[in-house]
């Protein structure tokens, strides 16, 4: 049996409708009007033990709703969901013993307590035997390099330090499933890399199943073999990173810094378009299947004097937007 099984999961919310103006507000007091918003529209998927899955999608797509249902915080309107054979919202206490959760926006630790006290309290909450706890804790402190700020109250930690502590705290009870909701949001480059390498490590070494949501395409590229693209409460793509690129075919960007501001002539370059120009900087979008990056660079350097250039993938929002436009057709 798969670790996570989700079948036709549907979730709607009642949103209160407020009429504009004073008369509307008064009317609203006596007669509440509400309309139904679909957050999840019959989604189905399975996750095997030890997988590392990334959920991406624009804000309000349904990522958080999915995680909230999987972790037992929210009850779905209809549909089936089982995690390790348990229905999360029916067996809350039993279920949450085997999951860990990290929310990038919000700490799970006690604001005023030193990190070690938070850890000790979690040991008691999850009833982790002292021997097991000590070994696990020391191991996490070692890997995540927490030693220097263990005695610091959580409120005084930097965001990167806090995130590392949060991840350690979510693993103290040895969960078999870890939810990471935007774990790299707001982190500096060094912390991001540290978090990524740690997530990869616990997935590979400990076999922990990881469900990750992010807006950072680099997180996905560095970590996830499998990606689920969610938009408007539906799963648009469920596959590998390459699948996603192929489905999206959103193309790439070539940014050129010219030595002298000039107009770039794109004659004879199929499918290449100028996205923005600003003084000496010009951004071109192109489809690597129609014209290879090497070919394009050769052509461009032949036409203008180039000081610097780099190629990058189209931003996530654009891929999602393209996907969504394709999905609704």
């Amino acid at each position: 049996m798969a670790h996570i099984e989700v079948e036709n999961l549907r979730r709607t919310f009642q949103i209160a409708v407020r009429n504009p103006g004073l008369s509307g507000a008064i009317r609203g007091v006596f007669r509440r009007q509400s309309e139904e918003k679909v957050a999840l529209d019959c989604i189905s998927f399975q996750v095997e033990k030890g997988e590392l899955c990334g959920f991406i999608g624009p804000n309000g797509a349904g990522k958080s709703t999915t995680i909230k249902i999987l972790s037992g915080i929210l009850v779905p309107t209809s549909g089936r969901c089982e995690v390790a054979g348990l229905t999360p919202w029916k067996h809350r206490i039993k279920h949450v013993q085997h999951i860990g959760a990290v929310f990038g926006q919000r700490t799970q630790l006690w604001w005023d307590l030193p990190v070690t006290d938070s850890f000790d309290l979690l040991r008691d909450i999850y009833s982790v035997p002292q021997e097991v706890y000590k070994q696990r804790r020391d191991n996490l402190i070692d890997i995540l390099d927490l030693t220097s700020f263990l005695a610091t109250p959580v409120r005084q930690l930097s965001l990167g330090q806090r995130m590392r502590c949060d991840i350690a705290a979510a693993l103290l009870h040895g969960p078999s499933l870890l939810f990471l909701d935007e774990p790299t949001i707001g982190l500096d480059a060094v912390s991001k890399l540290a978090v990524r390498s740690f997530v990869r490590q616990i997935n590979q070494d400990l076999g922990v199943t990881v469900i990750l949501t992010t807006h950072d395409m680099d997180d996905i590229e560095a970590l996830c073999r499998r990606i689920l693209v969610v938009s408007d409460g539906r799963i648009l793509v469920d596959g590998s990173f390459e699948d996603l690129r192929r489905r999206a075919s959103a193309g790439r960007r070539l940014t050129i810094d010219m030595v002298k501001a000039a107009t770039l002539d794109l004659n004879g370059l199929p499918g290449v378009q100028i996205t923005t120009t600003n003084a000496g900087r010009c951004v071109l979008s192109f489809d690597p299947i129609v014209i290879t990056p090497a070919e394009l660079i050769r052509e461009v350097t032949a036409r203008v004097e180039v000081a610097d250039l780099f190629v990058e993938n189209a931003p996530i929002e654009e891929i999602i937007a393209n996907l969504y436009a394709g999905g609704s057709q």
Partner: peptide, 12 residues
């Protein structure tokens, strides 16, 4: 503030 979610995630 939504901090109640945190309590729901603990087996107590």
């Amino acid at each position: 503030s939504g901090d109640f979610d945190r309590l729901l995630l603990r087996p107590r």
